[in-house]
């Protein structure tokens, strides 16, 4: 059992012992350990990837959200502008229509007034004419009730005719 001469016994037991150790560990320990470590690593890796994916999704979602918001705002503005425009247009139209109608009514009214006026004038004229005739008749009757006056009139009339 010197320092650098290996003894048969130790060689033998070492070979046997290491062989048994290797067999036991390679069969009952390492596969389990490696499987667990690998599966855990895979799990961690997949979870990291998943987290990354979710984060990207969130980012996308956020930007989508943002875009949607912007779009909604734009739409709102558009709608408001449209509404304003429509209102103005409607106002203008209404005003115009009202004006036109007012004009029509006014002109009709004017016509009616004119017509009525004319009618009234005609009536008044007729009335005045009738009254004048009646008055003239009465005056004539009154004037012509005396003989000399009748003669004077006829003379006056004749005078006029002679002049012609």
């Amino acid at each position: 059992m010197e320092l650098i001469t290996p003894s048969i016994g130790l060689l033998f037991w070492m070979l046997v012992g290491f062989g048994i150790l290797f067999f036991i560990l390679a069969k009952f320990a390492w596969p389990i350990v490696m499987k667990a470590i690998n599966s855990r690593e895979e799990k961690i890796e997949s979870q990291l990837a998943e987290a990354e994916r979710v984060r990207n999704d969130m980012k996308n979602l956020k930007s989508e959200h943002q875009a949607l918001l912007v779009q909604a705002k734009e739409e709102r503005d558009q709608i408001l502008a449209d509404a304003r425009k429509i209102r103005e247009k409607l106002y203008e139209e209404t005003k115009e229509t009202a004006n036109r109608e007012a004009q029509v009514i006014i002109s009709e009214a004017k016509n009616a007034i004119h017509f009525e006026k004319m009618k009234a004038m005609t009536d008044i004229k007729n009335e005045i004419a009738n009254m004048s005739i009646e008055i003239a008749e009465k005056i004539l009757r009154n004037e012509l009730s005396e003989k000399e006056k009748q003669e004077e009139l006829v003379n006056n009339l004749l005078k006029d005719i002679n002049l012609n």
Partner: peptide, 23 residues
């Protein structure tokens, strides 16, 4: 000579510890 010498004994102890720990 395949006696269980001091080193063989130490070797067995190490193997037992290895098995114990890793199992």
């Amino acid at each position: 000579d395949i006696s269980i010498t001091k080193n063989v004994c130490g070797l067995f102890v190490a193997i037992i510890i290895c098995c114990f720990v890793f199992l």
